[in-house]
């Protein structure tokens, strides 16, 4: 959302390339709307900085701070020179009063976050590790609108990502994926996974989920 009204000038903050906008675990009271430049959202997972998202002008971030103070769940780093509107929670009501389209955008963001979190719970609450791994693959397939689940599919992901989603250790996930690979269910590459029949995985996971 680009807000080029001069009223907002006093909320405009400029960031240099590589500058931290906020960092993980820092208490958060502000939310941000990018006006120019790109922002990288990163998290330290197992001692490695992982990029979760790259945001572009018009995007909103730090929105969890809108309703209450919470530690940030990730860090935001300016990828290039950025102009960003920074609003304190206290200004939120006034802001959306004048910009209802922003409120709509926020509703969409929150809807997605809720679904993603619920979907993640569905994975985590499966009991068997193989099922968790299968369900992560299903989830990744579902979240890509270009994927047709009827045929063979290719997911752009690596073992580390799958492990992260499944809440499992990398070597355990590797064992399972290697097994799927050996039995011909998937073809494992270092940057992607090719799945012959994701519907099979869905059937297996759904039958186990109901019985539990």
């Amino acid at each position: 959302m680009l807000l080029d009204n001069p009223i907002f000038d006093k909320f405009m903050v400029e960031y240099a390339p590589n500058e931290l906008i906020f960092c993980e675990f820092e208490p958060g009271n502000e939310f941000y709307i990018i006006q120019s430049g790109r922002v990288k959202i990163v998290k330290i997972v197992n001692n490695t900085e992982k990029t979760i998202d790259v945001l572009k002008p018009g995007d909103i971030f730090g929105e969890m701070a809108i309703l209450e103070e919470q530690p940030r769940s990730a860090s935001a780093i300016a990828l290039e020179h950025c102009k960003i509107l920074k609003f304190h929670r206290d200004n939120f009501d006034a802001l959306i009063q004048g910009n209802p389209q922003m409120a709509y955008k926020l509703l969409v963001i929150f809807s997605k976050r809720i679904y993603d979190a619920k979907r993640r719970l569905m994975i985590l609450l499966l009991e068997e590790p193989q099922l968790k791994v299968m369900d992560v693959l299903i989830m990744l397939a579902e979240s890509d609108p270009h994927i047709d689940m009827q045929g063979p599919i290719t997911l752009r992901c690596n073992i580390e990502e799958v492990a992260n989603w499944a809440g499992m250790q990398i070597n355990e996930v590797q064992k399972i994926l290697t097994h799927f690979n050996a039995t011909g269910k998937i073809e494992l590459y270092n940057d992607r996974i090719h799945i012959k029949n994701i519907r099979d995985f869905q059937r297996i996971v759904n039958s186990r989920r109901k019985s539990s």
Partner: peptide, 18 residues
């Protein structure tokens, strides 16, 4: 906008619980 604000509050509560 009042409706949106209410919804946002509900959604963020749900998100926090999940």
């Amino acid at each position: 906008v009042g409706v949106v604000k209410k919804m946002l509050r509900v959604f963020s509560n749900q998100l926090r619980k999940i």
